[in-house]
Write a protein that binds this DNA or RNA. Structure first.
Lengths: 192, 192
DNA sequence: GAGTAATTTGAGTAACTACTCTAATTTGAT
DNA sequence: ATCAAATTAGAGTAGTTACTCAAATTACTC
């Protein structure tokens, strides 16, 4: 892959892989579907990728990275920022968002993916927890983290439903969730 | 299927199908996996079922039905009851719960499943909305329904995460969610 | 316990899967 | 323009898929 055409073909294949995963899921993604979508023959695919897995994992990485476009802002953004960023991701990166949600479930099959998804999830929970702790001094760090766990999982539920129903108003429900979870609950009284 | 052994075999195959879907997802479910799990040869499977689809759909129906064990109670149960019933389902019917969550995503491929899942979801939202409206007179019916939409989707998010992380405390997070969504928000101020 | 229908067996099929290989073509530095 | 390397073409392979079928076995009725 040193010529321009090779790089273009590689990009086209990754785009196609993304579209196919978004449409058919990780398990339902076949080489034929990818090649048809990318207008490429199997020989070309295997000239640029070692395996189907490699292309799929590249897209998986894209999706996970795209969820949080600016991980370097750590320690400065509010929960509202974080939720808004996720909503923006869901609304503007339709295919990648679908891929992301598909991964969350397919992970339960492939143990390596499972571990990767869980690690990413924990990172998000921690970041949300810190933001929550900053804005709600009444919460202990542990309480903030637990509420962040609820929030992040719930947001994923909203994202999940959008895959089924494209008219689902993600922005609205995310805001309701955020308002409710951050309002008036200085103490986590549901514990124990 | 008129002999006792045939009925037993049928049940064993459905149990196996349930376990395989829970473990590998709808797309990842193969006749071989089902037959191995049920200790049956393909010929026997096809003596009792017309197709793989038929067995899978039977399990899908089981899962959807099991989510709400008592649909006749309509109009009398509280949101707390409904949430508790879902939590109980998730905790006590591990395999069926996994199947249920898997369906929610796989539905995006098979359009018939998608429609069925959406119909079921809408039914649940309506039931949750009615319970919410009963307990919170400050909410209009429409507001109650919208909050129910948020709640049901969020609960599914919590269920989804449990598939990835079996130690996830579903009961706790469901209660936090319920408390937050039902507390102090007589007016849906996030609208518009 | 004989007869009949249900059930099980297990090899077989056609279509699909991921992936390979060689020959033909295209690319870009010289 | 030449030439080596990159890229593409496209038939081919081995394994897996859902599903079939005739023959052997088993279960129940009388």
């Amino acid at each position: 892959m040193r010529y321009k055409t090779g790089i273009e073909t590689r990009d086209r294949i990754l785009e196609a892989t993304r579209a196919v995963i978004a449409r058919s899921g990780l398990e339902g993604t076949t080489i034929k579907a990818i090649c048809d979508e990318a207008n490429v023959l199997p020989g070309s695919f295997y000239n640029l990728f070692d395996s189907k897995e490699q292309a799929v994992l590249a897209v998986v990485r894209q999706a996970i990275d795209a969820v949080d476009p600016d991980p370097t802002h750590e320690g400065t953004d509010t929960i509202s920022d974080l939720v808004a960023a996720y909503v923006r991701f869901l609304e503007e990166e339709g295919d990648l968002a679908r891929v992301y949600i598909r991964i969350a479930l397919s992970g339960a099959n492939h143990s390596d993916l499972n571990a990767r998804v869980l690690r990413h999830h924990e990172g998000r929970v921690e970041r949300f927890g810190q933001a929550l702790h900053r804005s709600s001094p009444g919460l202990t760090w542990e309480q903030a983290e637990r509420r962040a766990e609820t929030l992040v999982s719930s947001l994923n539920g909203i994202a999940l439903h959008r895959v089924l129903d494209p008219t689902f108003d993600v922005a609205h429900h995310a805001r309701v969730l955020l308002d409710d979870i951050t309002s008036g609950h200085a103490v986590d009284r549901s514990r124990g």
